[in-house]
Nucleic acid binder design. Structure first.
Lengths: 201, 201, 201, 201
DNA sequence: TATGAATGAGCGTTCATTCAT
DNA sequence: CATGAATGAACGCTCATTCAT
């Protein structure tokens, strides 16, 4: 997992991490299938053998990117959801956090939402299961808000979560660093649109 | 462009259309890069030569899917945007329409938002330019609504459009026909969340 | 067979000739194998069917180029060799003539000496037999000159003919129309080098 | 570069050299375009991947044949031209040497003078530049002979070089090992014809 | 640990040729 | 006479992966 804002990958970064960082960057830029193992190891300054020593296959690289990202997201969400404050406050915080994380790990997200279908079936289902848990955790927060009355019950929580995550996952498809819109601005408006949409009209 | 709900592709469908329909289906299912030209022509019951008689390359197939879809969408949006009624009413109608179209051409959309990056540079930019026009047309509708006062001016129209289209484009990533949620239900709630989010709190 | 200096190929040229002319030009420029039948018929402004109506195959096109060229050369040589004057005079005239013909039909010659090996075996041997007759006719002239005493007998006539034809056949490999050297100049010096080389030291 | 007279290509020859030798043989026999990569690697007893490990493309194989041959020739010519003796003596030695080399590397030469036009433009021009240097070195020798008076000045040196090299390059088109004419005989007569042709009549 | 030569299966594409119309 | 859709076989090339060293 590579922070978009992170600097150079100095030689003292452990090789597996360096390989993952390089792979993430290239997958985001050219796509998983258009990036050869040779290109990855060249960019990382090692040979194929080294890569196959740490990763069983090219698919493993992809899976590992997903796995790390999902783990990170889940930990953050659980911490926020389990915190103090009203459901609405925690939902707002979680929504803002997922957006900020998305901007921070933009390449990882881009790869994720573009290439899941390329994983072998079993891996794909493992990823989906992790995603589902994450989705449900977020959904519970929405339902809690509906029960406490701060959010209207009219919208099924599942749909609201699909609605919000859908647009979060698409960010990598249009957002370009250095453009006119700042990430913080986008994040705040997105959260606002979600929360306002869930309030009484 | 293939309606997901369409029936069999009988032999009297012109070969180019049949190839496009088959390709759309397979690209949506397994991804562009994981679908070989051989598989496509096998499924269409012809040989590679026949395909290359009509399409210059595998990329052309992809581009043609995009091109047809974008043309269809643009025509529909222009008709709705140029219709009668308040800006809010037309925005609501347009939002509902793009959702219904998305469900109808789910495979085409899935391919679109997953594989644009695989097009050669020039084609990719042609597609982006078409998308931009579409985006701007929709954005104008939002701005008109803000000027007429039915929508709050707080949210920049550009962001609102990215917000909405983002989630529309992700539908293919999670929606499965035959599932618990009906397309009409989803569409209505999505439109409602958008419009409600854009109203005064 | 196309005269390099010939003008446009107007529509009233019989189709077979137009096809041969176009093919000769393209074969000389890009090589036989790198020129597709489609390109030839496009350049000639007809369709494949038309070409296959007149020529049984792409190889036939090549063979016909050779056949016409060899026929032309043989007729010219026989006329010169059977003329009046000393053997040396007739040899000089024949040598000059073959050079001038080579410049005039430069494309045809270029194709000839580059692509003979691409003909099917039987055709290739037919061409070789025609070449051999031509070679022998020229050789007889050299031997006649040696018998009459104007040429030294030291050089085997066969070798002299290979020597001269070798360089004639290579002209297309280096000569470029419009360059510094004029065809007439080259031809005269080549003939001079041959005849002088065959004289008593 | 393969000596025509060389024996079998035992397994201990490095693979790149073995591939080059096999390719040279086949290109000379059937032509570059009519020889598939598959045939080459079959004959060398390896798979395509092995070939592409060492050569970037089929064109590279061709270029390498040229490059090695040109390097060899240039080195030999420079050594002879820079030696002692009159210009005429060095010219005679150089002419004899290029002929003997041509017979020794007959396949390489055959490929060279038949397939240069099949190289990609940049490679083709690199080869032409190398050829030009070679041509100029030889031409300088002729001009030196003209200045020292042993050769007549009547013939432009450039034309004389084209004349001689032309026929040298065609040798592969007609000479067959094992035939009636011996290489040494041919070489001596060719050199004699050149030198005698350049002497005062 | 790490190398890099080599594999083997598959890829997108080309093209001379055929044939129903 | 001429068309052009379609074939079928081959082509150059790629690449994830393996394995002797």
């Amino acid at each position: 997992m590579t922070q978009t804002s992170a600097g150079r990958l100095s030689d003292d970064v452990p090789l597996p991490d360096r390989l993952l960082a390089v792979a993430t960057r290239m997958f985001a830029e050219k796509g998983f299938e258009s990036t050869s193992v040779q290109e990855i190891v060249n960019a990382a300054g090692v040979t194929k053998g080294a890569m196959y020593h740490y990763f069983g296959s090219k698919d493993d690289l992809l899976y590992e990117i997903y796995h790390r990202l999902l783990g990170l997201q889940m930990r953050r969400l659980e911490q926020i959801a389990g915190g103090t404050g009203s459901a609405e406050e925690r939902l707002r915080a979680a929504a803002l956090d997922v957006l900020e994380t998305s901007f921070l790990y933009l390449d990882d997200f881009t790869v994720f939402f573009r290439s899941t279908h390329l994983l072998p079936r079993d891996r794909r289902e493992a990823v989906r299961a992790e995603r589902r848990r994450y989705h449900e955790c977020f959904r519970d927060l929405v339902e809690e808000g509906q029960r406490e009355g701060s959010l209207r019950a009219h919208t099924p929580a599942d749909i609201a979560v699909h609605f919000f995550f859908g647009t979060v996952h698409q960010i990598g498809a249009w957002y370009r660093p250095g453009g006119r819109l700042k990430t913080r601005t986008i994040a705040e408006h997105y959260v606002d649109l979600l929360l306002n949409g869930l309030k009484q009209a």
